[in-house]
Design a protein around this nucleic acid. Structure first.
Length: 743
DNA sequence: TCGACTTGGATTTTT
DNA sequence: TCCAAGTCGA
């Protein structure tokens, strides 16, 4: 049906730089446009570059018009990056193509055919928080004790079912598990009914309902199959069953064969099994799509030889692999430094000092990262870096649109846009406090459930009767009148202006202005930012949909900072210098992962370690400690088994054998352990000062100093490591010298 | 209805 | 240890 791709349709002389600069494998991946293609792209092998070149190639050669390409990514960030890079390659923005996340594309399809799956066109999209609250209500109605059976657990169960493409009617007894005495499937059914009434969907539905739509309406499916002649899927190793089914349906050629689908991924970087991803999808690709072309990208452009060797040695311990051999034309570089320290505090101190040393070499903080297994591990580093005055940022904290004040403000906007949005209405019905308590809300619920109407409708009715106490009724009537007024205003006022008015008149802004807590000013800032973000959209509905789908991180990044984040969060990123702390049994591999998934769990943890190692371009330090405080109790730790799996020729171990005997402590040991690249840098450093123990000596009476908590001050007296200081703002205090820096 | 206190639980996270 | 959610008294 299409021309065989024998030669490049672009005359060799006219080939653009983005094509000629590719290596052989990359170029093969770009030019294999016909039939199913699997691109196995190892870490640092130029995957994004190849992928964008492939898209540009399809457009440039005229094989596909923008509207005939379906390109799927996992994150909005990836989608955005790809859009921008393709535009840069072909020299103009690409319009009207289908590039986005599974969910964004799912919505786009569902909006066109909403009625066919029982929705009204303006359906809203619930996030996790709304989901849990809705499930809680369902459970309450069914009389299930939510202390014994938490709603969030049920939310996770339902999510998993949806990941596997299972609707409530597909859950059999064996799948149901023992949640709420085996009633989970019934609850799932109830939940879906409630969603239907609310004209809402959750994230899982975006795919599940698409699949249903395709299965029930072959005519619609075939319309999309014909439209999308070229499919491209990024991070294929992370797809779950629902996503797989969705893709399979779309990738079925009208003639019965597979269309031109290209999946890109790396089985060695599959780290999302716990959230439903099926490595099996990528391992099975050649069976799913017979006659598939497989291209391996194995030349690594990122890391030096020893780092690559360490990564390769480690991952070779996994059994379930398609197998790739990464190689690099680059020099061997520094060996990977393996370091054993006394405890977590020392670990943080060591990393902080090492970073300062590098900083003195004029290496940018933006090129350094600390990657940890779990969120709680970031704290020690944050505290230490704060003490040192080292600029850092923690990636993966609470995201902008998940913050309380933002969700509250959004709830107001949602009720204006959709008065029947019960979850939003309930969220702000008494925020700020206006005397509408749980008793009143209970009454609204009862009426709503009895008459099948929304909370807002129930509220309007109850205001005309005597069921509520006069105070509550008055407050409720005022709120309803407010919303009516705002809705009227929304017709001729800009949504940006309206948002300002709502936040003012509702008393929401005032609530935070009156709040004396430390976070309050930040929250007010965030609210301003929200209103500003609103301006970038045509109307309120456009904005609300964006928010539901794009829970993007607040990307303010002034100045270079050290990044602290989880290994999961680091996927796809790279840094010159990487620190991997906490490589101990009991921390990494994560014991729970082993408990729950056994050998498969261990392999996934190992892949996570692999991801961590391959983030580093030039310098990598892996640390373990002998003692760590976990949930408040001290535990003796032994080094992670992964350390033993690193090839000896690629690593350099330092650390004191005396550690386990508990003989040496802190500073003395620290000095011994300065090795490798660090020592090299120390000797070449003119400022030379790597000596954590020095900081105590330098401060004398009369010095001007800075303290993290109390700010600027003058030293009045010193007594060993205790200083008495007259702070400019906080008055006279005695503090520990470790928290003080010379101004 | 609201604030102070207790209690239990605690990976990884995107959409 | 630390945080969020739930209980209790005013």
């Amino acid at each position: 049906m299409t021309l065989p791709a024998t030669t490049s349709p672009i005359p060799p002389a006219a080939e653009p730089e983005w094509l000629t600069s590719l290596n052989t494998a990359q170029r093969a991946a770009v030019e294999a446009t016909e039939g199913p293609v699997l691109v196995l792209a190892g870490a640092g092998t130029g995957k994004t570059r190849t992928l964008t070149a492939r898209l540009a190639y399809l457009l440039r050669t005229g094989k596909a018009r923008p509207g005939e390409i379906l390109a799927v990514t996992f994150t909005n960030k990836a989608a955005q990056e790809m859009t921008e890079r393709v535009a840069a390659l072909i020299g103009r923005p690409v319009e009207n193509w289908w590039l986005g996340t599974f969910h964004a594309l799912g919505v786009r399809i569902l909006r066109r055919h909403a009625e066919l799956v029982g929705l009204k066109p303006g359906f809203s999209i619930l996030d996790t928080d709304d989901q849990v609250r809705l499930l809680k209500q369902v459970m309450e109605a069914e009389g299930i004790d939510d202390k014994k059976w938490p709603a969030r657990v049920l939310a996770a169960i339902v999510q998993r079912w949806k990941d596997r493409g299972l609707g409530p009617e597909n859950i059999n007894v064996a799948d149901a598990g023992d949640f709420a005495g085996g009633r989970s499937a019934a609850l799932y059914m109830q939940y879906q009914n409630r969603l239907r009434i609310l004209n809402a969907v959750d994230f899982g539905d975006l795919l599940l309902l698409c699949i249903k739509l395709f299965q029930r309406h072959p005519d619609i499916l075939s319309e999309y199959q014909q439209r999308f002649r070229y499919l491209l899927v990024d991070e294929y190793q992370d797809t779950n069953v629902a996503q797989y089914l969705w893709l399979r349906l779309l990738a079925q050629n009208v003639q019965g064969g597979a269309s031109h689908i290209c999946c890109v991924g790396d089985d060695d970087q599959s780290i999302y099994g716990w959230r439903g991803a099926e490595v099996g999808n990528i391992l099975r690709f050649e069976r799913d799509f017979p006659g598939a072309t497989v291209v391996r990208l194995e030349q690594n452009y990122r890391s030096t030889g020893h780092i690559l060797g360490a990564a390769a040695g480690l991952i070779s311990h996994n059994e379930d692999r398609l197998g790739k051999t990464l190689w690099s034309a680059d020099a061997l570089g520094e060996k990977v430094q393996i370091l054993a320290l006394w405890d977590g505090e020392e670990e943080a101190r060591w990393v902080g000092d090492a970073i300062e040393t590098l900083q003195r070499q004029e290496i940018s903080l933006g090129d350094m990262a600390v990657l940890v297994r779990a969120g709680w591990q970031t704290r020690e580093f944050e505290e230490r870096f704060m003490t040192l005055g080292l600029p850092y940022r923690v990636i993966g904290g609470p995201r902008f649109y998940e913050r309380q004040e933002i969700r509250d403000a959004l709830a107001y906007l949602r009720v204006v846009a959709q008065p029947d949005d019960d979850l939003a209405f309930e969220r702000i019905i008494n925020v700020p406090r206006r005397g509408i308590g749980t008793a009143t809300v209970q009454t609204l619920h009862t009426l709503g459930r009895a008459t099948g109407c929304s909370l807002m409708t129930a509220a309007i009715q109850l205001c005309t009767t005597d069921e509520l106490k006069p105070a509550a009724r008055r407050a409720l009537a005022k709120l309803i009148a407010d919303f009516d007024r705002w809705r009227d205003l929304s017709r001729d006022m800009s949504h940006v202006e309206l948002a300002g008015i709502i936040l003012d008149e509702s008393g929401y802004t005032a609530m935070w202005q009156a709040d004396r807590s430390a976070e309050a000013p930040g929250r007010l800032e965030n609210l301003k930012e929200l209103v500003a973000a609103l301006a970038e959209f045509e109307n309120l509905n456009g904005f609300l949909e964006h928010v539901a789908l794009v829970m993007e991180n607040d990307g303010s990044t002034e100045g270079a900072r050290v990044s602290i984040m989880t290994l999961h969060g680091a996927k796809g990123l790279e840094f010159d210098t990487v620190f991997l702390p906490g490589w101990e049994e009991g921390v990494f591999p994560n014991p729970r992962s082993l408990d729950e998934n056994g050998a498969a769990g261990l392999e996934e943890e190992r892949r996570l370690a692999y991801v961590g190692i391959t983030r580093a371009r030039r310098r990598l330090t892996i640390l373990s400690v002998a003692n760590r405080r976990i949930y408040g109790t001290w535990q003796s730790c032994i080094p992670s088994r992964f350390l033993d799996e690193l090839p000896a020729e690629d690593i350099e171990r330092s650390g004191s054998p005396g550690l386990s005997a508990g003989a040496n402590r802190a500073v003395g040991v620290l000095r011994e352990m300065r090795t490798g690249w660090q020592r090299a840098q120390l000797s070449s450093s003119s400022s030379g000062g790597y000596a954590p123990d020095d900081i105590y000596d330098e401060i004398a009476t009369g010095d001007r100093i800075f303290h993290v908590k109390f700010g600027m001050g003058t030293v009045l007296a010193t007594d060993m490591d205790r200083l008495t200081i007259a702070f400019d703002a906080a008055g006279e205090k005695t503090v520990v010298a470790g928290f003080v820096r010379k101004a």
